[in-house]
Computed example of a mutant assay.
Amino acid sequence: MSGFLGPLDFDSRIPRRQQTRVATFLISAHGALARQFAFTLPMRLDAAWQTELNAQFYRESEIVSLLMRATSWIPDLALGYMAASWETAWLPAPIDGIADPRLAQAVHLATLAHAVHAGIRPAALLPVEANAQDPFVMALRRIEFESSRLLQAQILFLKGEDLAPYRDAVSAALEQRHDSVRKLWRETLASIGVDAPGTE
Results as ranks from 00 to 15, higher is better:
residue 113 A to T: 11
residue 54 N to A: 13
residue 192 I to S: 03
residue 90 W to R: 10
residue 126 L to C: 08
residue 25 F to Y: 13
residue 112 L to D: 06
residue 37 F to C: 11
residue 39 F to A: 13
residue 86 W to Q: 05
residue 155 I to H: 02
residue 71 T to H: 01
residue 146 E to K: 06
residue 117 H to I: 08
residue 152 Q to L: 12
residue 7 P to G: 03
residue 64 V to P: 03
residue 179 D to R: 14
residue 167 R to Y: 13
residue 41 L to A: 06
residue 34 A to K: 05
residue 119 G to P: 08
residue 151 L to W: 00
residue 42 P to H: 05
residue 134 D to F: 00
residue 19 Q to M: 03
residue 83 A to D: 12
residue 185 W to Q: 04
residue 42 P to S: 04
residue 61 S to G: 14
residue 45 L to A: 11
residue 142 R to T: 06
residue 6 G to F: 07
residue 30 H to E: 09
residue 151 L to Q: 10
residue 199 T to S: 06
residue 170 V to H: 03
residue 123 A to I: 05
residue 191 S to G: 03
residue 68 M to C: 12
residue 5 L to M: 07
residue 117 H to A: 09
residue 53 L to W: 11
residue 125 L to M: 07
residue 66 L to Q: 05
residue 82 M to R: 13
residue 22 V to T: 07
residue 16 R to E: 15
residue 60 E to N: 11
residue 65 S to D: 11
residue 107 V to W: 03
residue 195 D to G: 10
residue 92 P to N: 09
residue 108 H to S: 14
residue 191 S to E: 04
residue 159 K to F: 15
residue 74 I to S: 11
residue 155 I to R: 09
residue 1 M to P: 10
residue 153 A to M: 09
residue 176 Q to C: 12
residue 66 L to Y: 01
residue 105 Q to D: 13
residue 152 Q to H: 11
residue 138 M to K: 07
residue 63 I to K: 10
residue 37 F to D: 08
residue 100 D to H: 14
residue 9 D to A: 08
residue 117 H to Q: 15
residue 17 R to T: 11
residue 3 G to N: 12
residue 78 A to S: 13
residue 196 A to P: 00
residue 68 M to T: 13
residue 24 T to A: 09
residue 73 W to G: 01
residue 181 V to T: 04
residue 154 Q to L: 06
residue 178 H to C: 10
residue 61 S to M: 14
residue 52 E to H: 10
residue 193 G to Q: 05
residue 41 L to K: 02
residue 90 W to T: 15
residue 2 S to N: 11
residue 102 R to G: 14
residue 39 F to N: 12
residue 164 A to L: 14
residue 87 E to Y: 12
residue 110 A to G: 10
residue 182 R to L: 07
residue 43 M to Q: 09
residue 111 T to A: 01
residue 127 P to N: 06
residue 58 Y to P: 02
residue 59 R to A: 13
residue 26 L to I: 02
residue 111 T to S: 01
residue 78 A to Y: 07
residue 125 L to S: 05
residue 40 T to H: 08
residue 127 P to V: 05
residue 51 T to Y: 15
residue 149 R to C: 05
residue 17 R to W: 06
residue 15 P to M: 00
residue 100 D to L: 11
residue 188 T to G: 12
residue 101 P to T: 07
residue 23 A to H: 01
